[in-house]
């Protein structure tokens, strides 16, 4: 038996447990059960955010992190997408590049951090490079796979109806590969944030990760937790954006 719930209840219910946890956390902090040096209260984090916003520090760090994420994502995503496209469509490119890319894919990109620091220092290049590298492979794999697995019968149909080259690509192949490509993009957004967090935490002089590491030196628990919350919000935001585009591009797929 399924329970029929009113629309408003369906909207609110998923937030019930998070809200309860938040209230519990706040209460326990007030009562002193959770010591401040272990985990500051939600209100303290809000205050910290407010103060950092006042000095403009928070905005600077956030925009720098966001810029790195975007730059790395675009560079890696576009390279991965193009390679996936060409290797998926052209047999020659496939034979020439795929094996090499599959080999490189097996290197965990975060293992390259020491090398990347030696190559590029701890400036912007190293962060953008690492993010791009991390994003490239999931986008590549899913684009490649998406194109390879477009229904051969639909391609044959397209040819029978006189489509070729560009038309066949835009009417049949690309839309057929789209859901797989979007899976790759969703996944790579996760990789993007993870890579950025690690890179900024290990070596940076700006950005959210740096803010957290810097706060650690001064035992500013509220700022550390704030950084984590900001990363989580960024992650959630990119997921929402990705879902929005999925809904738009795959609205035929119900």
């Amino acid at each position: 038996m399924t329970w029929r719930l009113k629309g408003s209840v369906e909207k609110v219910l998923p937030w019930f447990i998070p809200l309860l946890l938040l209230i519990g956390w706040q209460t326990l902090s007030w009562m002193g059960t959770i010591p401040e040096r272990i985990l500051p209260a939600p209100t303290q984090i809000i205050v910290a955010a407010y103060e950092l916003m006042g000095t403009g520090e928070l905005y600077d760090h956030m925009s720098i992190s966001l810029g790195r994420a975007l730059a790395g994502f675009l560079i890696g995503g576009i390279i991965g997408f193009l390679f996936g496209l060409f290797n998926g469509i052209f047999r020659f490119a496939d034979l020439l590049f795929d094996t090499s890319i599959q080999m490189l894919r097996n290197i965990p990109h975060l293992a390259l951090i020491p090398l990347v620091i030696l190559w590029f220092g701890i400036g912007e290049t190293s962060k953008v490079f690492l993010v791009a590298l991390g994003v490239l492979f999931p986008v590549y794999i899913n684009t490649y796979h998406g194109i390879k697995s477009v229904d051969k019968k639909l391609i044959e149909m397209g040819k029978a109806y006189g489509l070729k080259g560009k038309e066949l690509f835009f009417h049949v192949i690309l839309p057929g590969a789209m859901s797989s490509i979007l899976v790759g993009i969703r996944f790579s957004l996760g990789v993007m944030w993870l890579t950025l967090i690690v890179a900024e935490t290990i070596s940076a002089q700006t950005g959210i990760g740096y803010m957290a590491m810097n706060a650690r030196e001064f035992m500013q628990m509220d700022v550390i937790v704030l950084s984590i919350v900001i990363y989580a919000l960024f992650g959630k935001l990119s997921d929402v954006i990705a879902r929005y585009f999925e809904g738009k591009l795959l609205k035929w797929d119900r």
Binding site: K153, L154, E156, M157, G158, Y161, G162, L163, E167, H171, V172, P175, G176, M178, L250, W252, D253
Partner: peptide, 20 residues
């Protein structure tokens, strides 16, 4: 015309008919 129709699922009916 094929047994399985082979309409493009991502195109509306009218755009499927316009194909080519």
């Amino acid at each position: 015309m094929f047994q399985d129709g082979r309409l493009l699922p991502w195109k509306r009916v009218k755009d499927n008919v316009c194909l080519g």
